[in-house]
Structure formats: structure tokens, C-alpha cells
């Protein structure tokens, strides 16, 4: 990273804090080392053991947090109001590449009594204000990225995106396999609905998304089980159950996601049970969820929205930098051996 980029990073950091401070969000600093984590099969954790002399013979495992959600949800459930986090998160098991570093900076915010559409308005205002802020204007002008932030965002449902870019009808059940096959997707052995959905998404949809404006994909299939609430089916189309979830892409790169956070304790239990089982089936030990997790849900009839946004990727978009190593201080890339480096994508 150049010195110039280090200053840009500082400016973007200040912009984020100012944006949320002005809107009355409380900045929260959760611990980065945690004895608990939500078991999620696709997230690998960094884990370490706590050597503490007076703990007897069972030192607990501690995890480097993959996201601050546990802590923020706990506070919001206790009625602390809107809050944000800007800090480090850690993900294991992801291939080092131009968009991934195992340690990265995450912006996460929660809005009480809100749905995903409310949080989307916050995101749009956030993106729009970037080139208007005094400290970032020069940067976006020099990098030629101003129009990316000013362009009208494109919003469409995941089903519309599948129809448009993959010519595939996104429906629950077997219908997806038929439609995918007709569009040239050869079946893979043991491929389930969720894997086929993701395969089409990463092969045909994501690479086709416009890269000159903010793109929002919304209404993700309910079959992809997450901690996002199910949405009541629209009368017009009951062929696909969806959740209150969106993902935002900027410059063609996945930047942020949002959930209307789960409120149903039974669905939470089902989620945890399934994820734990998947992790065990893969021969790993699932992490311990916090004992009070059920209490961190919105009360019946209420909802809140949570957004996670990759700060480093945002800086890439702001400064027009094509690789993550260009925007972080000491990327792990630089520390791995040159021989390994040659084969990295």
C-alpha cells in the first residue's frame, strides 16, 4: 500500500464514523476473541486455546470473531438502539486472492424497528454521500470513480437476475434443475438445490452484473437457510419462497449484505441444528453458540435490520484499486513465500 492510500484509508474511516455518528448510531467495540461463535458450515474460524493457569484442566477454545453480530445483536435486543461496528474480522479457509485476506475490516450496522428496505435506504445514502464528502471528493475525482457512486442504483430480485442473465427460472424444487439443464447446466453428482443455485449465481449472474453502478439483488431464496426472516409469499408468484435479504455489488464486486434478522426462535433452533450437523458431517467440531442466543431475537411482531459491508472492498471501489493488497497495510500476501505467491489468483 502506498502512503497516499494510507491517507485515503484514514479519510474513508473518518467518513464512515461521521456518517453513522451524525445519524445517532452508537459505535460498539465487541471483543475480537470470543468463547462463542454461531455455527455456520460455510464459515471457517480461526481458533486458539486460552492458557489460563487457574482454569483447571479444561482450557476453553477462543475464536477470532468472523463477524461482530453476536455482540451487536445482544445489545440491540437489550434495547440499546441503532449501532455500528468498524473493525477487524477473521475468516479461515478462504483462498488468498485479490478479493480475500483472512483478516479484514468490516463495517456492520444494525437498525432497530427496521426492515431490509430501511437499511437499503441507509446504504444508498451512504454510497451517494461518498463523493460529496470533502475529504473523499478529490480521491474519487482523481481515480475517476465519482460516477460509480452517483449513478442510480439498479435494484432487482434474485429471480429477475436469474431470468435476465442466466435465462433460468428460479423456482423452488425440481423445476430449477430442469430450467438449468435447458440453459446448458450439466447436472453434477449429488448436487443439491442450494449448490446449483450458487453455481448459477457465481457462473452466470455475478460476472454479468453491471460494474458502473450500485447493484442490489434482493429476495434471496428461502431454501438458502440464513438468519434472515422469511417473507410472506407474494400473491402473484408462490413458486419461490424468499427471505428478507439483499446483497449489494459495487464495481461488480460483492460489497455488502443485509438481513431482516430472524425473530422466530424455532427457526433459529432449526438453523443451529442443521449447521452443527453439517459441520460434524465434515468431520469438524462446531463452535459453541452463546447460551442466550435465543434472547437476542427481535420480539414477536418486531424486526431489525443488520448490514455487513466490506470496508477494504469499499476502499478498492473508491480508489479504483483492482486488488485488495493495494488498500491494506500489511496483506498476508506479502508474508507468504514468493514461490506460493506465483500461483495465487
Amino acid at each position: 500500500m502506498t502512503q497516499e492510500m494510507a491517507w485515503a484509508r484514514r479519510d474513508l474511516d473518518r467518513f464512515v464514523r461521521q456518517f453513522f455518528d451524525e445519524r445517532g448510531f452508537l459505535q460498539v467495540d465487541p471483543p475480537l476473541l470470543s468463547p462463542y461463535a454461531i455455527p455456520e458450515a460455510h464459515i471457517r474460524l480461526f481458533q486458539t486455546s486460552w492458557e489460563q493457569p487457574n482454569l483447571g484442566n479444561a482450557p476453553p477454545e477462543l475464536y477470532l470473531i468472523p463477524s461482530p453480530e453476536l455482540w451487536l445483536k445482544r445489545l440491540i435486543a437489550e434495547g440499546w438502539g441503532a449501532m455500528y461496528f468498524l473493525g477487524r474480522c477473521f475468516r479461515n479457509g478462504e483462498a488468498l486472492g485479490r478479493y480475500h485476506n483472512p483478516e479484514f475490516t468490516m463495517l456492520e450496522w444494525y437498525e432497530p424497528d427496521a426492515e431490509e428496505d430501511d437499511a437499503l435506504e441507509t446504504l444508498k445514502a451512504f454510497v451517494r454521500e461518498i463523493p460529496e464528502s470533502k475529504s473523499l471528493r478529490t480521491l474519487t475525482e482523481r481515480a475517476g470513480t465519482t460516477s460509480l457512486f452517483r449513478a442510480k442504483p439498479l435494484e432487482l430480485t434474485v429471480a429477475e437476475a436469474f431470468e435476465h442473465w442466466a435465462n433460468i427460472r428460479l423456482v423452488d424444487g425440481e423445476g430449477l434443475f430442469d430450467s438449468a439443464f435447458r440453459s446448458g447446466y450439466e447436472p453434477r453428482p449429488d448436487e443439491d438445490w442450494k449448490t446449483l443455485f450458487h453455481r448459477i449465481l457465481v457462473t452466470s449472474v455475478e460476472p454479468a452484473l453491471p460494474d458502473d453502478q450500485l447493484v442490489i439483488l434482493r429476495d434471496y431464496p428461502a431454501a438458502v437457510r440464513t438468519l434472515a426472516q422469511r417473507k410472506p409469499a407474494a400473491d402473484a408468484d408462490r413458486s419461490l419462497q424468499v427471505r428478507g435479504r439483499w446483497e449489494a455489488y459495487l464495481g461488480g464486486l460483492e460489497l455488502a449484505n443485509c438481513y431482516r434478522e430472524l425473530a422466530d426462535p424455532h427457526e433459529l433452533d432449526d438453523f443451529l441444528e442443521q449447521e452443527q450437523r453439517t459441520i460434524q458431517d465434515e468431520g469438524r467440531t462446531p463452535p459453541e453458540p452463546p447460551p442466550g442466543l435465543r434472547n437476542y431475537l427481535a420480539a414477536d411482531g418486531h424486526s431489525w435490520a443488520g448490514v455487513a459491508l466490506g470496508f477494504d472492498r469499499l476502499l478498492m471501489a473508491v480508489s479504483g484499486t483492482p486488488r485488495l493488497e493495494g488498500v491494506i497495510f500489511f496483506p498476508l500476501h506479502d508474508s507468504v513465500q514468493t514461490s506460493t505467491k506465483r500461483s495465487l489468483g
Binding site: 460455510h42 478462504e94 486472492g97 442450494k194 449448490t195 443455485f197 450458487h198 457462473t203 438458502v224
Partner: peptide, 15 residues
């Protein structure tokens, strides 16, 4: 060309 992708809530793919 080869690129690693991690879809929002799914397994990792190589594109």
C-alpha cells in the same frame, strides 16, 4: 482464468 468466490451464504467455488 481462475478466481475463488465465496457466495454470500454458501460453499466456496472456483470460477
Amino acid at each position: 482464468e481462475r478466481e475463488f468466490v465465496n457466495p454470500g451464504k454458501g460453499q466456496a467455488f472456483v470460477r
